[in-house]
Computed example of a mutant assay.
Amino acid sequence: MYQDPKRIRQRCTVYLDQYEADIITAMANYLGVSKAEVMRQMLMKEAQETLGIDRGNGTHSVTAQAS
């Protein structure tokens, strides 16, 4: 059914306080994308930096959409 079954996204719950949730909501509104997309991009960027993974110039990030 899917070309790559490993690319199917899974649900992950994150509990935020009101201040943190407001920041994510404000950023999503500013960029015009969903809160899930903002959080996914932030999480993956942090993980890649922490692990020293260079994805090259081919990645599409939320920050690139803002400019």
Rank of each mutant, 00 (worst) to 15 (best):
Q65V: 11
D54L: 06
R11W: 01
S67D: 01
V62Y: 00
C12A: 13
S67E: 09
H60T: 04
A64Q: 14
M42L: 15
G56R: 05
L16Q: 07
R40N: 08
R40P: 02
R7W: 01
Q48A: 15
A66E: 10
Q48T: 14
T59K: 03
G58F: 09
D17C: 04
E46W: 09
P5H: 03
T59E: 15
A64V: 07
D22N: 13
L31H: 13
M39Q: 12
K6L: 09
I23Q: 03
K35Q: 12
R9C: 07
A36Q: 03
Q65H: 06
I23E: 13
S67F: 14
Y15F: 03
T59A: 15
E20K: 12
R9Q: 06
G52H: 01
I53R: 11
V38F: 10
I24G: 01
S34E: 03
T63M: 10
A28L: 05
T63C: 05
R7K: 09
R9F: 06
Q3Y: 10
D4I: 10
L43G: 08
R11I: 12
Q48K: 08
V38P: 06
T50D: 02
Y19H: 01
Q65W: 08
K45P: 00
D54F: 07
E46F: 11
A47D: 04
M27E: 04
G58C: 08
T63Q: 07
V14S: 00
R55G: 03
E37G: 08
L43Y: 09
D54E: 05
H60I: 07
Q10E: 06
N29D: 13
Q3C: 03
E49A: 15
Y2K: 00
Y15L: 12
A28H: 05
G52F: 04
C12H: 02
I24Q: 01
Q41F: 06
T25W: 10
N29M: 12
E46A: 11
G32L: 14
Y15I: 10
A47Y: 12
L16D: 04
D4T: 00
N29I: 11
A64F: 09
Q10L: 14
N29C: 02
M1F: 12
T59Q: 15
P5E: 11
Q65L: 14
E37R: 14
R9T: 08
K45Q: 07
D22T: 02
Y15W: 08
D54P: 06
S34Q: 09
D17Y: 06
Y19L: 03
K35L: 14
A26I: 07
V62K: 05
S67R: 10
N57T: 14
Q10I: 13
G32E: 04
V14C: 10
Q65C: 04
L16H: 02
E49D: 04
L51A: 13
M27D: 01
D4Y: 03
S61R: 01
Q10V: 11
I24H: 02
A36Y: 01
D22Y: 04
A28D: 00
A21K: 11
Q48F: 15
Q3M: 09
Q65R: 15
L51M: 12
N57I: 14
Q18W: 08
D22Q: 02
R7T: 03
G56D: 06
I24C: 09
G32N: 10
A26E: 13
P5W: 03
Q41T: 15
V62A: 02
L43P: 00
Q65S: 12
Y2T: 00
T59D: 12
L16T: 14
R11M: 06
L43W: 00
T59H: 05
M39V: 15
T13N: 12
